[in-house]
């Protein structure tokens, strides 16, 4: 797989996981942003679904990151997940 294919693959993975978690799957959007050594996947969901992808005490977000981390290892490339809050085009990152 080329890096590009892997990236599409990871984008799809995050999209599909998020779609399974939210009430408005059509609003799920994932962009990939290249950084030096890693790819940042930026997840956007409907404002009412933000809590669903973050979870109580950030547990759902942390679980998604663990899954992403495991697949990253198989791809030998680092992917990180940012969850963007709507109404904030600068993309405030969710942190735990």
């Amino acid at each position: 797989m080329t890096l590009e294919q892997k990236q599409d693959n990871m984008q799809e993975l995050v999209t599909e996981i998020a779609r399974a978690l939210v009430d408005a799957p059509d609003a799920v959007q994932v962009d990939a942003v290249e950084r030096d050594e890693s790819t940042v996947l930026r997840l956007r969901v409907a404002p009412t679904d933000v809590g669903k992808v973050i979870g109580k005490q950030g547990r759902t977000a942390r679980s998604m990151r663990t899954i992403l981390g495991a697949v990253s290892m198989k791809h030998h490339h680092r992917y990180t997940l940012d969850i963007l809050e709507e109404n904030n085009s600068h993309g405030q990152e969710h942190s735990e």
Binding site: I17, A20, L21, K52, G55, R59, T60, R62, S63, T66
Partner: peptide
């Protein structure tokens, strides 16, 4: 990873 999958699956 097993726990992470378990959590996400429960939410699904």
């Amino acid at each position: 990873l097993l726990r992470a999958l378990e959590h996400v699956a429960a939410k699904v």
